[in-house]
Write a protein that binds this DNA or RNA. Sequence first.
DNA 1: CTCGTTACTGACAGTATTGTAGATAAGGCG
DNA 2: CGCCTTATCTACAATACTGTCAGTAACGAG
Lengths: 206, 206
Amino acid sequence: MPRSPGHAAPRKRRTADEARAAILDAAERRLVASGPTAIRLQEVAAEVGVSHPTVLHHFGSREALVEAVVARALDSLHADLMRAVQSAPESEDRLESLLDAVFETLVTHGHGRTFLWLMLSGYAPKEDLRVRSLAEAVHAVRRVKPRKQKKAPPFEDTYYSVLLPALAMLSMSVAGDKVLDEGAPLGPRGFRRWLAKLLHEHYDKD
Amino acid sequence: MPRSPGHAAPRKRRTADEARAAILDAAERRLVASGPTAIRLQEVAAEVGVSHPTVLHHFGSREALVEAVVARALDSLHADLMRAVQSAPESEDRLESLLDAVFETLVTHGHGRTFLWLMLSGYAPKEDLRVRSLAEAVHAVRRVKPRKQKKAPPFEDTYYSVLLPALAMLSMSVAGDKVLDEGAPLGPRGFRRWLAKLLHEHYDKD
DNA sequence: CTCGTTACTGACAGTATTGTAGATAAGGCG
DNA sequence: CGCCTTATCTACAATACTGTCAGTAACGAG
């Protein structure tokens, strides 16, 4: 689009919050795609359509920007995960839909990649990963459903059975395509169903 | 250590192979610790005790160095994994020792971290991850041991049962400490034993 | 011992990236 | 409408990193 020569493009002025949000969005895209070190002021600024000192104006320093992005990304992951596990229906094949929901968050939405990138880069969250609280919720369900003459399973067993699919999904977010293409005719869905069945067997029998 | 003023330190001359190996070692340490982008000519050179043009002399460019490191690291991972799975004894609790061996390679030796770094950074290996061939080996064992009146399990089942612990170990190499401390009184060993038991159950019953 | 190959070096160039400083103008508010 | 706050800009400084170049010296071969 041609501009009158000698005249700069009309300067657009966002509210501080809008600008910060737009910048965080751009920075997060780069974070997910290529890791924290790929967050460069000039490129982020260009993507938003501003000059890089504007970014510094809003965040103070590159490091502060990165930390803001990390904090927001971890919050987003946490919220998305919570929503996922809560949205799973109470019905029969609860287990599979739960795995599907976690898969959606970690793999499809790319939160798993981001999380691994942050862990590797030393941006580990200070708070726990809340796997324990999730396991506690599942454990409560297991206790009220003693279908046969089972003795109550130890909490440890439930914890591990929650941890296992979580770890698997996490790796899938990075290596899933590669590793599933290699020997799985049914795609990621097949693996999830198999895993759901495995855990179901275990719960039903132990 | 003081040097005569005006005299540089006596220059040491390695064979080209020795120099290359030393440089690759230093670069690989940085790769494992902080990813491919952390491989910087000056720092690698300093760690080896040479000047950075020497590194360029041996490898041509930074990218060529990185690729050499990546190739060597992937070879090393592959060899270590093969050695691990082959060294597992044929005895009864073969499954648990197998998991222990894979854990040793991926988590203790840090190969899991490196692998994830490389995948995230776009240095995915062109060859497969050889999970399939491993699964085929396991599948062969399952067929010759039809303890009861089972029908032969589909290969897919074996493949998934190999894939699952592999993915879990991979994630553990990055988030293991964090996530195990959170709710596992028995440490990583406990998880592995639980997992071995889970798979054993599955194999024995299906 | 001499000589040639080449591992190695210091100095420099070029580029990218973060951060600073001062000026400018957009938009709200009296 | 006029003013003040501040989001935004251009221009520049400072540093870090990769890569080039010409020269030096270590070691093996003859």
